[in-house]
Design a protein around this nucleic acid. Structure first.
Lengths: 209, 209
DNA sequence: CTATGACCGGACATCACGTCCGGAAATTAC
DNA sequence: GTAATTTCCGGACGTGATGTCCGGTCATAG
């Protein structure tokens, strides 16, 4: 339940010092390898050099904090990807993915926290699905269009293929920026693009056994 | 301290009634859509028709319970997949995947719980990675062998490709059995197999732009 | 009949959450 | 400079879940 007692009326200009401190402290803790679930409000407050009660005058709860963190990285990866069109070819797709990898890597800690909390919290789950659904819908549409144009096999199942592509791709991405070497970003983006391209968009016409 | 003079034959055979009751109750709750994290020991005990203290005389904590549940589904999906060899072709790969889909679907609830808890608990995470690592290691080895034999492109990056394949595949699988229609199991398995096959194993030799 | 082991039903201590206040300190208004 | 307002501190509460412990009941194996 949100506290209504302390209303912040006029802080129009800058975010409160304590609030920014808390956001930063949380990121620091996450980057240091802490996992969000077992991160206590007391810990965060201490790290931020702020009283625990102050935390609650800025955030309803930990989820609220996480969502605040999340909106800060809403540099939509969707835009960069959906700008791509099959007629651009594989290499351009790899370029687009490389950009996405960079974005993910920059916000890896918060990404990880989001994926973590999404498994048991509806709010965060909905936030993430909304983000992924953009990709899903777009991908299905593109695949259907390619099928209609006869450039993608007609017997391909757009829904299953998209599930593999979007869900699987996102997971591989998170795994890559979590465990993979930054030096291999380009190689990874390229593999991702090639797998999509030849596995889905331009799967060969003859299934010779 | 168990008595040595006394034979405990009656207990040796079947698990204690209460223990089995708890395991079953937990599965029931999970299948009904509850998520493991916000499932209380009291809830589980009540559902099992057992005292809360009895829970603790059988399980150290909730994680212990989950791990017990997990080992029951250790019908290794690895065996069925690793039996496949690239020389068997795509269709056989699709068959193997279909079996895996069925296994996942059967234990979907526990699977979901495992994926959920793995994000914040080290024990469960290690359990799952150990399972996935089998696939990862095996897949990398197979890819390298195929490259050496000249049947898979030499410029393919086995590590990145495997990340996409294994991590992505697992996620797509979980997503499919969670949200997908059982009737589309075969279609999904086939898409998965075809994407792997043409996206990775038999990616075309000419990258014409 | 007796001892044993499984289970019940509470009582505890502990801990994190979220709420609420009173007062200090800093900022803004007058 | 003083007064009013906002922000933060520090701590007290109530709540609800965890994990531990223990006395007591009951069925059963010896």
């Amino acid at each position: 339940m949100p506290s209504i007692t302390r209303r912040r009326t006029a802080n129009v200009g800058r975010p409160t010092s304590a609030e920014a401190e808390i956001l930063a402290a949380t990121q620091r803790l996450l980057i240091n390898g802490a996992n969000f679930t077992e991160l206590g409000v007391q810990q965060i407050s201490t790290e931020a050099g702020v009283a625990r009660s102050t935390f609650y005058s800025h955030f309803r709860d930990k989820i609220d904090l996480l969502m605040r963190l999340a909106t800060e990285l809403m540099t939509s990866s969707f835009d960069v990807t959906s700008a791509w069109d099959p007629s651009d070819g594989v290499e351009r797709l790899a370029d687009a993915f490389l950009q996405v990898v960079k974005v993910y890597r920059k916000h890896a800690a918060v990404r990880r926290a989001l994926a973590e909390v999404a498994t048991y919290d509806a709010t965060v789950r909905d936030f993430l699905s909304a983000e992924l659904n953009q990709f899903t819908d777009w991908t299905i549409a593109v695949l259907r269009a390619e099928q209609d144009a006869g450039r993608t096999r007609a017997d391909l199942d757009p829904v299953s293929a998209t599930r593999m592509i979007v869900m699987g791709g996102e997971r591989a991405l998170v795994d890559h920026v979590t465990a993979g070497d930054p030096g291999s970003d380009a190689a990874f983006a390229r593999e991702l693009a090639l797998t999509w391209w030849y596995g889905v968009y331009r799967r060969p016409a003859d299934y010779s056994k």
